[in-house]
Amino acid sequence: MASHTATAKPTIVLDMSWLESPAHTTRLSFRGTPAAIAAASSVFGVPLPTSACRSATVGSRSALWQGPDEYLLIAPESERTLIIQALTNELSAHAHSLVDVSHRQNGLIVKGPHAVWLLESGCPLDLDLSQFPIGMCTRTLFEKSEITLWRLAPDIFHLEVWRSFTEYVIALLSETARELAA
């Protein structure tokens, strides 16, 4: 990453153990009618949550609620063609939209005892477990970047960030992590 401020002190060796970049995955934007959503659940093998801001995971596949008619389906990269074909074939009777957005965004994992503290530097949501429980997912902001924030464990968060905003989000998190290095 390029040095981003004149103030960066070379003496700091930044601990980056709080950050992980997961392997590339299949990402599908699925939108449709309630009937299509129900049908997609059985084809995808994961019940698409009907509660706002909730996710469901079965095995290596997850469905993230993004809006009342919108989901982000996440699966291993190798299953992309299979899943697209299955959904397209099985849902022909139901009004819906399926768009491959695998390359649109990157996944980031922010983890560790300081995960919440790091994210609170740019995310305006209340990340207390009582307000943002495990499995909750939502689009929100990290400073000037839209992100999807998804809590996997009390101290593990999965972020989905649009491709060209990823460097910015990592740089800002790293700026905040400098406070930990001191």
Partner: peptide, 14 residues
């Protein structure tokens, strides 16, 4: 805050 220099705005690269 951090919004100065290269972090003033996201720098989107092609």
């Amino acid at each position: 805050g951090h919004a100065r220099g290269d972090l003033f705005d996201p720098v989107r690269k092609t």
